[in-house]
């Protein structure tokens, strides 16, 4: 039975890889992650190397994204800015997944008063529009990569909590849970061994989708000036800095912006394809 169920999944996976868009999206996301860890593979410049003879040069083969007003290579600065944003995204997702799973499982599993109390709390979180909730948290915690990540993470907890709860409620009524209980398994064991692993799928898909949401929110917050202090350059900060030179050097803002937009687009496409697969 397991084999029969697994076989089509493998075939579908191969078919998916043949889809040019899906393959391209995967490739681009892998490139961004790899280049964040080993930027030297993709650039020969340093992130703070200034070059007075190449100030504000338009994009070319020498400088893929052009150079800024100090003659720093922008492509290099984008790649060296990746770890900060990726780190912030992972922290945000970590908070959202852990808190969301905890809220959702407790809520869906215990039901009754606990369920209504927790879900009302989630409703309240949802009543404060996302970016504004993030802004209040940033006001309280101060600026920097970690506060921004925490702020964004808290903002996407409700989605995870609701998705997990719905899954737990669905899985809880399935015959094998009943069978496990009848077989003498404790509720803790049923929860950890049967309900959690089987509720995980939609949560994982949501995590990929929310990675895109989180990247936009993190970039927006650092664009607004709440990110890491200079000379560290998160993507949002790079784009905000380039804004003042838009009329003469459009690439300073638009190319890093395109870099971020393509990443979000790729993540959204991957998550959408995964969603179609799990259906």
């Amino acid at each position: 039975m397991t084999v029969a169920l697994r076989l089509p999944a493998v075939t579908v996976n191969r078919l998916e890889l043949r889809r040019p868009l899906f393959a391209g999206a995967l490739l681009y996301v892998s490139f961004v992650v790899v280049s964040a860890f080993w930027p030297r593979l993709f650039t020969s410049y340093g992130p703070i190397d200034t070059n007075p003879s190449a100030v504000a040069v338009a994009p070319s083969l020498d400088h893929l994204f052009g150079t800024d007003i100090y003659g720093r290579d922008l492509w290099t600065r984008v790649l060296y800015g990746s770890p900060l944003t990726i780190q912030a995204t992972l922290i945000a997702l970590g908070i959202a997944v852990v808190a969301g799973l905890a809220l959702g499982i407790v809520s869906g599993f215990f039901g009754g008063f606990t369920d209504s109390a927790l879900m009302r709390f989630v409703d309240v979180l949802l009543a404060i529009p996302g970016l504004l909730l993030a802004l209040s948290i940033v006001t309280a915690l101060g600026y920097g990569t970690v506060p921004v990540a925490v702020a964004v993470g808290v903002g996407i907890v409700p989605g995870f909590a609701r998705t997990t709860r719905a899954e737990v409620l669905r899985v809880k009524t399935l015959p094998y849970v009943e069978a496990a209980r009848a077989g003498g398994a404790s509720w803790t064991r049923v929860l950890l061994r049967h309900i959690l692993p089987n509720s995980w799928g939609p949560v994982a898909v949501l995590a990929v989708l929310d990675a895109g949401v989180a990247i936009i929110a993190i970039a927006s917050l650092s664009f607004l000036g709440f990110g890491a202090a200079p000379p560290a350059a998160e993507w949002g900060t790079l784009i905000a800095d380039g804004r003042n030179y838009l009329i003469t050097s459009w690439w300073l803002s638009l190319l890093p912006g395109l870099f971020v937009a393509l990443l979000v687009l790729s993540l959204n496409h991957i998550s959408k394809t995964l969603q179609e697969l799990t259906r």
Partner: peptide, 22 residues
């Protein structure tokens, strides 16, 4: 729509300024 929802708003705003204003 999926494409439209993927672009950060500050990027869209800067692009519109560059194209339609400048």
């Amino acid at each position: 729509p999926a494409v439209g929802a993927s672009f950060p708003q500050f990027f869209i705003a800067l692009f519109l300024i560059q194209f339609f204003s400048f």
